[in-house]
């Protein structure tokens, strides 16, 4: 509850601090506009056209269902990866042997391109939801696993000794000792994974599904409709930015408030 209140209270100041970001975005649009005038509408439609196409997609009611389908797949895969990666990563981090053994496996997972997983997933799951969900899961899992592993391993041994001397029960060790420390490693990993999931799901849909943003992109590509292709891209990027900067970033700030109080101390 306090988290929610802090989140709401923090939004205005946070948005106000975003003027610099907005300015740089507008510079980007200006460059886009300039490039559009050079190359022509067929190759690169200007931002105005793209956004009106996007508005048209939203008005006609085609945008939301597709975005919802894509979001459902991405978030399912991401949720599975977060659950499995966080838990397994922390477990592996507690034991030296497990972390040594898991490192090379994770490197293999990280090194395998998502497109390779996608091909495998298409063989295994066909055109069902399983294909994008699995691809998202497998692309996000190692990122989160490594975050949790690093976080657990880097916990100060002195604090662990202190915890056992003060006879902290196992549950308290988790909530009062490990989690607060690990979260500062996990959260950035979750955010990275969110970006990955969103990108990977569109790719997976493009090649394997009949609905979702990826499928819509495939259709607009086959119609050589650059404007609606860019409109869909804007929709995908816009949703991701909105989720990351309006939801995750403020939560992260709140969770890490103990870190940011350097100014105004008594020292």
């Amino acid at each position: 509850m306090t988290l929610l209140r802090a989140w709401l209270a923090g939004i205005p100041a946070y948005l106000w601090s975003g003027w610099g970001a907005i300015a740089s975005l507008f510079l980007f649009f200006a460059a886009w506009e300039a490039a559009a005038t050079v190359y022509g509408v067929l190759i690169l439609p200007p931002p105005g056209t793209v956004f009106s196409t996007l508005a048209g997609l939203i008005d006609s009611g085609t945008a939301w269902p597709e975005l919802a389908v894509t979001a459902r797949r991405a978030l399912t895969g991401l949720a599975l990866a977060i659950a499995a990666g966080s838990v397994l990563g922390m477990l592996a981090g507690v034991s030296m042997t497990a972390s040594m053994m898991s490192r090379p496996l994770v490197t293999v997972l990280l090194g395998t391109p998502p497109i390779a997983w996608l091909v495998l997933a298409m063989l295994w799951f066909g055109a069902s939801d399983g294909t994008p969900v699995f691809t998202v899961f497998i692309a996000c899992f190692p990122v989160i696993f490594v975050g949790a592993l690093q976080g657990t391993r880097t916990l100060d041994g002195h604090l662990r000794e202190m915890a056992s001397v003060f006879r902290l029960p196992a549950r308290m060790k988790l909530t009062d000792l490990y989690l607060p420390h690990v979260v500062s490693y996990l959260f950035p990993a979750w955010i990275t994974a969110l970006g990955t999931s969103w990108k990977v799901v569109v790719m997976a849909e493009l090649l394997s599904s009949a609905d979702g943003v990826g499928a819509a992109l495939a259709v607009s590509r086959s119609h050589l409709d650059t404007a609606s292709t860019l409109a869909w891209i804007c929709a995908v990027v816009g949703t991701l930015l909105a989720v990351e900067y309006l939801l995750l970033e403020p939560i992260k700030r709140e969770l890490e408030s103990w870190r940011q109080q350097d100014a105004g101390g008594l020292t």
């Binding site: 002195h158 000794e161 202190m162 009062d176 000792l177 607060p180 420390h181 103990w258």
Partner: peptide, 10 residues
């Protein structure tokens, strides 16, 4: 302990 060993997040 020799060092205070306080939990920084509490």
């Amino acid at each position: 302990f020799q060092q205070p060993r306080l939990l920084p997040w509490k």
